[in-house]
Simulated assay, not measured.
Amino acid sequence: MGSDRVRILVCEFVTGGGMAEEPFSADLFAEAEGMAAALVQDLTALDGVQVLLCRDARLGPMAGCESLTIGAGDPVEAVWAEGARRCDAVWPIGPETGGVLERMVALFAATGRPVLAPEPSALAVAASKWASSERLRAAGLPAVPTVRLGEEPPPAERYVVKPDDGAGTVDTFILGSAELAAWTPPSDGAWAVQPLVEGDAASFSMLVGADGRARLLACNRQRIRRLADRFESDGVTVGALAERRDAWKPLAQRVADALPGLRGYVGVDLIDGPDGPVLLEVNPRLTASYIGLSAALGENVAGRVLADLLPDCVRMKDMSEHG
């Protein structure tokens, strides 16, 4: 990192080869592509930063950066590792589901390159709905009580059941108390049970520095439709709940304190209820709320992450130059 130019490997799991042997899911692809494009745009707007982007061979190149192409039959992790060794640092984006993000971070850390991600201990807690709830509630935060499927849940008329390491609304079900007792999950793995909390779906985006200090960026509205037995996501409106900023600002630091090792961009999902916010989960990575965030704030969020976690590697341009 002593040269005038810094090379960052951006590896987004869905579009970067992690699903090279599988058909793309339309829902997963749209969000994944949006996050990758937003991050590449931010990074390439920085003076002296070049991007090498992991890219599924079925996709075309992305403007402004070089592609590291991965096709069916390629040794994905070996290609990713070689890409990391060609760069000065790595920025992984991936779901917690199945330990994907944890494995990506471990793979890149083994190359000796700095990885722009939280520490493994924080990733492990954030990957589990149950562990996250336990940690946040132990710290006195208003998190939804969560038990494992099969354990006695707190009294409620309706419950939300989801994979313990799930992402978004995928495989998330709404069940009555009688239904819950007889319910069989559609797939193996650990499942989390939470009382259905009334209120509006929301989130906040924050940065956590190398010193553990948190900065609230935006309060967002999650466009979630509640159907009879499940939820459907229709995206997020970044910054739509700006009036909640003063109330939620202390929560950002308390979440960071409760999960030592959080670093960089973090998204926190919650329900904005009549009695205040109820925290649902902590996402230790870029989320859909990152798309359009820099433009909404008028500053380069990726640049802020680099300036804090890799302070010697980048000279930021005037933030007004961000498109």
Rank of each mutant, 00 (worst) to 15 (best):
L196W: 02
L196I: 06
V197W: 01
D200N: 02
A201G: 13
A201R: 00
A202M: 14
F204Y: 12
F204V: 15
M206V: 14
V208F: 07
A210C: 05
D211G: 11
D211V: 08
G212F: 03
R213D: 12
A214E: 07
R215Q: 14
R215F: 09
L216R: 03
L216F: 08
L216H: 03
L217E: 13
L217Q: 07
L217P: 09
C219V: 15
N220A: 10
N220L: 10
I224P: 02
I224T: 12
L227F: 08
L227E: 15
L227A: 13
A228D: 14
A228N: 10
R230F: 07
R230Q: 11
R230E: 12
F231V: 11
E232I: 09
E232H: 01
E232C: 07
E232K: 00
S233H: 04
D234H: 10
G235H: 02
V236M: 12
V238R: 01
A240Q: 07
A242P: 03
E243D: 13
D246H: 01
A247C: 15
A247V: 15
A247M: 14
W248N: 09
W248Y: 10
W248R: 06
W248S: 12
L251C: 08
A252F: 06
Q253T: 09
R263P: 08
G264H: 04
G264D: 11
Y265M: 08
V268I: 15
V268P: 09
V268D: 11
I271D: 08
D272W: 02
D272F: 01
G273Q: 08
P274C: 10
D275Y: 00
D275V: 06
G276Q: 05
G276D: 10
L279A: 12
L280P: 03
E281P: 01
N283K: 04
P284I: 14
R285N: 13
R285I: 15
L286N: 11
L286K: 01
T287W: 02
A288F: 03
A288H: 00
L293V: 09
L293R: 01
S294R: 01
A296I: 11
A296Y: 07
L297P: 06
G298C: 11
V301W: 06
A302T: 05
R304Q: 11
V305Y: 04
L306P: 02
L306C: 03
D308I: 04
